[in-house]
Amino acid sequence: MLNRKKVYIILAAIMALMVIIEVMWAHPHHHMIWNTVPGFDLLIGFAGGWALIILAKKIMAGILQKEEDYYDREPLAESEEVSNGQGGGGHA
């Protein structure tokens, strides 16, 4: 599996470097808080990432995910076949 410690160290180095560059050289064209405060994008990235993971993996997966043969199972069709001998021609 992934060596997490190594990944975290590399990412931390990249993040630190980016913040330093932002402080030294960035001239924001726009003046919202994420443009002006150095490193604010880190917060958006981290919080946004977690928000999406929770939204998708916890909320949406719980509501929307079904067994793979969900659309192939047809509980109604069988009972119809039994109930009328000549039926079946009617449904598409």
Binding site: L2, R4, V7, Y8, L11, I14, M15, M18, V19, I21, E22, W25, A26, H27, P28, H29, W34, N35, G39, D41, L42, L43, I44, G45, F46, G48, G49, W50, I53, K57
Partner: peptide
């Protein structure tokens, strides 16, 4: 420009941390 480039790399690096935590 420095602000565009740093903005995106910061976003991505921070989100990667979230990904690795939840891997």
């Amino acid at each position: 420009t420095a602000d565009h480039v740093t903005q995106y790399i910061q976003l991505f690096a921070a989100a990667t941390v979230a990904f690795v935590m939840y891997l």
